[in-house]
Amino acid sequence: MLPKVNQFLYLHVASSDDEEASTEYKSRISDMDNDELLIDIPLVEGTGKYKRLFLGDELSAHFVTQEGVKSYFNTHVLGFKEDGVKMIRIRKPDQESITKVQRRNFLRVPAELEMAIQLASQIRFIAMTDDVGGGGISFITDGKWPMQSGTELECWLLIPYRNGTVDHAHFTAEIVRVKSLESGRNQVMAKFSSILDSERQRIIRYCFERQLDFRKR
């Protein structure tokens, strides 16, 4: 069963930050067409705190049918629409993609990819990713580099595809969390703060290919 207009959606946003990823938001479907759902700006129930979403953000959603069954699907933000109030355009799920089992590991895959990073201070270095997704990345880096929450990074990610071609994705990212490792290195989790949709689609393509590889194992 597909979601309907005026039905509530409960959302989780894919994030490298565990606290943000575990937060559930509530929204309402305002309208729909063949390919999209238009939803209200999500908020945290009981607090009235709104969640700002960005183009390409990956979402795990569920709605409750009239029979009381939770139905889950994965989607992403396509854009926004102003019609008196701001609404968010998300990809409408196919019937076949809706499940009674929650799946929130979509489009974020473990991957060791080479990435060049530049800080505002003109410091440049190479790091290896820990995982990548359409909304952000995590990477491992030497503890000598100044990493802290809120720092903006300019990044160039090297992306190898299954057909043997290699591409690059350029973006800026904001650090949301830094974890010190026993090795003296840091695990850095960051979300995209500025990225062209074409660059994001390169990363998403890689993630889908990786998912296919995992399923074949």
Rank of each mutant, 00 (worst) to 15 (best):
I195H: 02
A61K: 00
I98G: 05
L157D: 01
I126P: 00
E96T: 10
G46N: 08
T47Y: 09
D130T: 13
N186K: 15
K216R: 15
G134S: 04
D17W: 00
L153S: 06
K216Y: 09
H76I: 02
R210L: 09
G135Y: 04
Y25M: 03
D57I: 04
T65I: 03
G46E: 07
M87K: 14
Y25W: 06
A61P: 01
M1K: 12
A111G: 08
R52N: 13
C155W: 05
S22R: 14
R52E: 11
D197H: 10
Q118S: 15
E67H: 08
G56Y: 03
E114A: 13
K81M: 14
S138R: 11
L37R: 08
T23Y: 00
R215P: 00
P42H: 03
E114N: 14
N74A: 13
D131G: 08
R162H: 09
N105C: 10
K49M: 12
D40T: 11
Q118C: 10
A111I: 06
R200Q: 06
D40W: 07
R91W: 00
I140H: 09
K92C: 05
G46F: 07
R124M: 12
K92A: 14
F8Q: 12
V166G: 04
R215A: 13
I203G: 00
M1Q: 09
I117W: 05
R215Q: 12
S198I: 13
R91A: 15
A169I: 01
K191S: 14
S71C: 13
R91H: 10
T75I: 02
L158N: 14
V77T: 05
I159H: 01
Q102M: 12
T165F: 04
E182P: 02
E45W: 06
Q122R: 14
A173H: 09
E45C: 05
V44L: 08
L55K: 13
G136Y: 03
V64S: 03
R177N: 10
G136W: 01
N186E: 07
D83P: 00
S138F: 05
K86E: 10
L158C: 10
L37F: 11
R52A: 13
A173F: 08
E174Y: 00
P146S: 08
L212K: 07
G135E: 05
N6S: 13
V85T: 12
M128F: 14
A116K: 14
Y206C: 02
G164R: 06
M1W: 01
D18W: 06
E174R: 12
Y72N: 01
R177K: 14
G84R: 11
F63A: 05
A111D: 02
G56C: 02
G134D: 00
E24L: 03
M115R: 12
A190L: 07
R124S: 12
G79P: 06
N186Q: 15
F106C: 10
N105W: 04
D131H: 14
Y206V: 02
S15V: 03
T47F: 11
E154G: 06
K216N: 11
P93W: 09
M189S: 15
G134I: 01
Q187R: 15
R177E: 12
P110Y: 10
E174T: 15
P110K: 13
R91F: 10
I159L: 15
L153T: 02
D197L: 11
G56P: 04
S193T: 13
A120H: 11
D31I: 07
Y161E: 05
Q211W: 02
F54S: 15
E182Q: 11
R200C: 02
F192W: 03
R205Y: 01
T151P: 00
M147S: 10
H168L: 11
